[in-house]
Write a protein that binds this DNA or RNA. Structure first.
Lengths: 253, 253
DNA sequence: TCCTATCACTTTACAGCGTACGGAGTTCGT
DNA sequence: ACGAACTCCGTACGCTGTAAAGTGATAGGA
């Protein structure tokens, strides 16, 4: 569900902002805010009301200035989002205290990302294939690699494993988050939705044509009381993924 | 990267549209289009220019009518997107000719979804936690379940496995698609982007602080000439996932 | 054959979006 | 004291989904 792109603005300018270059005393009025304050204001809005509600006017209003003032701090909305991204990457705790098995460490990495998506659902809507190379992103990448360093994988394999876990967690988190968001948005619980849909579906559906879907769908519906159980699906998928990496390492020996 | 929600409109009305209820001769002028034609027009726009370019006015323009005319066929944009979804789900070929191992069959399922995302990148931006329960979606779900039917999994486990594969493929496809989209959007290749970014990054980055990221990042950069190689990552992740399911089944015996 | 309910289609309107442009006022180094 | 650099703001443009109200065409029932 990507809508905005990280790296959509001028990447050099973004990095300068992220690392706090361009400082020092200069002529003109003193800035009323720091770049971090702008990012924090945007973050508060996106966390509360989603990325769709994040507008330059709204951020400005929260800071008590006009919309166009923001453009003296930030080249545009794309760069603002990049700043918000690196800010939340800073929330990840970067130490594996005590856990010395890569299995637990990689699980920690997955859960840390999972939590990040749950705390900041708008993160799911930002494509980060050219990520904002800020200090927190790089520290996070380092942390994730350290989870599987020195266990017999090549550097490329390490990158691939981190990528894979990231991809899976993103997919699972998206399912989880969108389930709660769509309930909020429509004002209907999954049960209410199903109660509304079921009678119409019964009229048109031919169980004989799709017996497997009918059987499993019924079983799942009874078990979850909903189209699915995202948290349980995440636990299940995470275990499978880790087992798969076990196999990969075992084969190399 | 979800922006729009499936099931955002009236779900009953959506199902009626999807299954072609509400037919028969009625007073008033003959409709100039079928619902499927409306969906096809929207699909063409979303495929060509992305979901952001999909507007009621643009769909109407393509059909040669005014924007508001569409509302006689479709209650709103949300339902239009649901129709588009079920349309592309119909592209999935639903038979496993000759392959009798679940490994190959599940791989087929994953690749079929992967291709679907590559053909219709806008699909990545639609949250389908309450899916449009049209004929093609249900047939697709049935197909995916048949891949792993009768191999010793419970019904719930079958649903979880399909969910897991779907989540992973979505995550991996998103990475792949956004890599090509961001290149188009910015008009810069990954190499050009890196050439622009690298000098600034060198100034601020301390390799001693994040040695693992520095080492692996350098190795990955040399191997890919880019931040990553999405197609290769997908192959790697898919293999891991399938191996993980192997372990799950083996443990049950 | 005529009446009327129903439908297809239209124009107009609203509030909100990112940001280009030009101008006004403030503060620094010299 | 001066000019350059800076912060900040008002206005404007074309875009969005769709509510409201009006016009004209068409079917079935009388």
């Amino acid at each position: 569900m990507t809508t905005d792109f990280s790296g959509g603005g001028d990447p050099r300018r973004t990095i300068e902002l992220l690392w706090g270059l361009r400082e020092g005393s200069r002529p003109g009025p003193k800035p009323r805010f720091t770049v971090a304050e702008i990012a924090a204001a945007g973050l508060a809005i996106a966390d509360a009301d989603g990325l769709a509600a994040l507008s330059m006017r709204r951020v400005a209003e929260r800071l008590g200035v006009s919309a166009m003032s923001l453009y003296t701090y930030v080249p545009g909305k794309a760069e603002l989002i990049d700043l918000m991204l690196d800010t939340i990457f800073g929330e990840v705790s970067l130490t594996f205290d005590g856990t010395d098995g890569w299995h637990e460490r990689l699980e920690r990495v997955a859960r840390e990302n999972w939590q990040l998506y749950l705390r900041h659902p708008w993160l799911l809507q930002v494509a980060t294939s050219r990520p904002p190379l800020g200090p927190h992103l790089i520290a996070k990448y380092d942390f994730e690699l350290r989870a599987i360093d020195g266990i017999g994988l090549t550097d490329i394999e390490m990158d691939l494993v981190v990528q894979m876990v990231g991809d899976y967690v993103h997919g699972a988190a998206r399912t989880a988050v969108s389930a709660t968001l769509v309930a909020q948005r429509t004002g209907r619980t999954d049960e209410q939705w199903w109660a509304e849909v079921a009678p119409v579906l019964e009229k048109v559906l031919d169980p004989a044509a799709t017996p497997t879907a009918t059987r499993v769908g019924a079983a799942a519906g009874e078990e979850y009381n909903a189209p699915g159980d995202p948290a349980r699906a995440f636990e299940f998928g995470l275990r499978c993924l880790l087992n798969g990496i076990d196999v990969l390492i075992a084969k190399k020996r």
